[in-house]
């Protein structure tokens, strides 16, 4: 059969293209254009708000990869991701399994309670948590002291050894509800017949979950992990409000590093948008690489 020319195909589908047009324009304006400009800015020596901008090629990239604070922040971002995502996935799954049980009458109540931090403004949570973890009259320390778990208050957010785990803990608590919801959605795709058939075949308890339910929800798990991993790399508002990356860079993740170099310097000298863009592009590519790897893993798992 003779294939229609491309122009004819486009003309025939003109209504489809028309409907796609608004979305394409918006994507172009708010996604493609900023990405393109950030690539361009990364090649400039530019503060971001003066007229003077000098083209310097890849010098910003060279400087970034030779900056120990860049790599520290880079690694810290992944520590944050690897420290929070598994906890959220496992905890979220366990909670979802319990709350998916139809017999549990208070399930909607617990779901709401666990989901509540998700809908609370993150900046508010960040600020409130600085008071919660304050070593002076903070409820966390009061509890630890009153139960004799510690003899002196702990400076959770001021101690370089405890600051990142504390922020990670708050992050897990804040977003656990959404992970639970993902898992609940996944579990609710398992037909009741499967549970019934498994019971008839004598599969109960952990066997039911390991051998029957888990293989069914595994493709969902990969998607959830992907979403969670990308989410854990975007933690700017929480860290900025809780620690601003301190003390002495102990909680500085990549987004804080980029923000600091793009907009704010400690002593008020000119910021460096060009350099920050280079760091951002480098970081974006790294995240893209991880996402692609996860995508490949997902496809492989589906084939299995």
């Amino acid at each position: 059969m003779h294939k229609k020319p491309l122009s004819k195909q486009i003309y025939d589908a003109r209504w489809c293209y028309l409907f796609v047009l608004p979305c394409s324009i918006l994507t172009g304006m708010f996604v493609i254009y900023p990405i393109g400009m950030s690539w361009y800015f990364s090649l400039l020596d530019w503060s971001g708000f003066t007229k003077e901008a000098k083209f310097i090629g890849l010098q910003n990239y060279y400087e970034a990869v030779n900056d120990e604070f860049f790599w520290d922040a880079f690694i810290r971002s992944f520590i944050f991701m690897f420290g929070t995502v598994p906890v959220k996935i496992v905890l979220g799954f366990i909670i979802a399994v319990f709350l998916n049980n139809q017999v549990l009458k208070l399930a909607p109540f617990f779901r709401t309670v666990i989901f509540m931090p998700v809908v609370t403004a993150i900046a508010i949570i960040g600020i409130v948590m600085t008071f919660v973890f304050s070593p002076f009259n903070g409820p966390a320390n009061k509890f630890l002291m009153s139960t004799n778990l510690t003899s002196a208050p702990i400076d959770f957010l001021g101690n370089p050894d405890t600051v990142l785990p504390t922020v990670m803990g708050v992050y897990v608590w804040k977003w656990l509800g959404i992970t639970m919801m993902y898992w609940l959605a996944a579990l609710q795709t398992v037909p009741q017949d499967v549970y019934d058939a498994a019971k008839i075949d004598g599969a109960e308890g952990y066997r039911l979950w390991i051998h029957i339910i888990l293989p069914i929800v595994l493709p969902f798990a990969i998607v959830i992990i992907l979403v969670e991993a990308v989410g854990a790399l975007n933690v700017f508002p929480l860290i900025e409000t809780m620690t601003a990356g301190g003390p002495f860079f102990s909680s500085e993740v990549m987004e804080i590093y980029i923000f600091r170099t793009a907009f704010v310097t400690d002593s008020g000298t000119m910021p460096r948008l060009g350099y920050a863009c280079a760091a951002g592009v480098f970081w974006g590519v790294a995240v893209l690489f991880i996402t692609v790897l996860q995508g490949l893993w997902m496809r492989r798992t589906r084939r299995i």
């Binding site: 600085t130 973890f133 002196a152 400076d155 957010l157 001021g158 003390p247």
Partner: peptide
Amino acid sequence: AFPGVMSM
């Protein structure tokens, strides 16, 4: 020093 100066 007051405990917690680093977080205020």
